[in-house]
Design a protein around this nucleic acid. Structure first.
Lengths: 217, 217
DNA sequence: GAGTGGTCTAGACCACTAC
DNA sequence: TAGTGGTCTAGACCACTCG
């Protein structure tokens, strides 16, 4: 037998999910499951081309993405290696909506529902290490995957980290108006929500990390 | 005269500096000097190929790099736009805390302050396209850069997208206990916060989306 | 339909690292 | 010298946006 090529599976050319992305998921899984351990030399570009039946450009597109995520390290003339374990800090709590959605082959999008500045409440201030009353920026975003709403997210951050915000020009862009009734309602409910959650404390226990989570954005 | 090609400068093929990098510096300068202002449509890929005498691959390599630095925003079918000031990008659309912090040479970390499931309030349900009362997962995270608290973030997402969450293993990760007193306080304050924000409605007016807004990280 | 960016191919030559 | 990743070309087809 002349050739016996080791293949780890073919990529689906008809899929709406790009090949480089399919390949990325495959390689990522090998890394995350430990099949490829940190420090391991992974197959070279030509090898991957053969194994998965794609061009070198596609392999390189995959690799570039994995590098940017910090999963692999490349060295000219030597090869491509699995990167060391991420700092534990990064493992817990980081969740990239975009990454996660794209990994599923969907298209992520964000809508800003509201944003503004306000004085930090005592609770927010203490969490952020500010004096109560210091100004914070808030932002509420709706995140969608393939136009389906997936996540509602509100963030606060100290205004002092947002220098220059007031220099933004608006050039006639529509001003979204959400401040008002909606928020009173939402926050009232949110409060009830949290109170209910306390009662359901056991439920909180099954949560720690997020669905697809270990995730580096 | 047969040809008169508009060029903004030729790239040096003999240079040890790659063409895509030379081109990147050129485009970067146009953006940073304001020759291309935020929101401006910049030349298309074929145009840049002609202008600088390089292949589309090289132009795209340049573009990818500028995108990853947040200097431009691309939209299929529409074109490539100059991104707004940094701060804006951070607040609008997709924002990767981790990337941003790392870009600044700091170490990102997240703390989960709370999470759980609860029934969706009317407001949350409507935003997420759920029926009121459908179950949602909530998560509150504190994000830090070099141990300095930078952002407080709360997210809601439909429980139905979190299948299998209960199969997560915790492997000794600490379970943070925050449900309780703290949250009543925080939410009460938060409500005051938003009410204050309403009073300061004019402040909200300086913010909204901006040019290239549908931003992909 | 024309123009844009997104994906992909099959080559090529180079600089670097190892043997 | 052989193998690796880094750069680059000249095509191709597609999905999307807009008039």
């Amino acid at each position: 037998m002349a050739f016996r090529v080791e293949t780890n599976g073919r990529l689906d050319g008809g899929s709406p999910v790009p090949k480089y992305h399919q390949l990325k998921q495959i390689l990522k899984e090998k890394i995350e499951t430990g099949e490829w351990a940190p420090g391991d030399l992974i197959p070279s570009e030509p090898e991957l081309c053969r194994m998965y039946g794609v061009s070198r450009t596609t392999v390189r597109q995959t690799m570039a993405s994995l590098v940017s995520e910090g999963l692999i390290v490349r060295q000219q003339g030597k090869g491509t290696f699995v990167a060391g374990p991420k700092i534990e800090q990064e493992l817990v709590g980081f969740y990239s909506f975009t990454e996660d959605v794209m990994r599923k082959g969907l298209r992520p999008r964000s809508e800003i529902l509201s944003k503004g500045v306000t004085a930090a409440s005592k609770a927010v201030a203490s969490k952020l290490g500010l004096a109560p009353g210091e100004r914070v920026v808030y932002l509420t975003r709706l995140r969608l995957a393939d136009e389906e709403p997936i996540m509602l997210e509100t963030s606060y951050l100290p205004e002092k980290y947002c220098q220059g915000l007031d220099q933004i020009d608006f050039r006639g862009r529509p001003l979204y108006d959400v401040l008002g009734q909606d928020f009173n309602v939402e926050l009232t409910r949110a409060r009830e929500t949290f109170e209910a959650a306390v009662a359901d404390e056991y439920e909180a226990s099954w949560l720690r990390i997020w669905p697809g989570a270990p995730v580096m954005p």
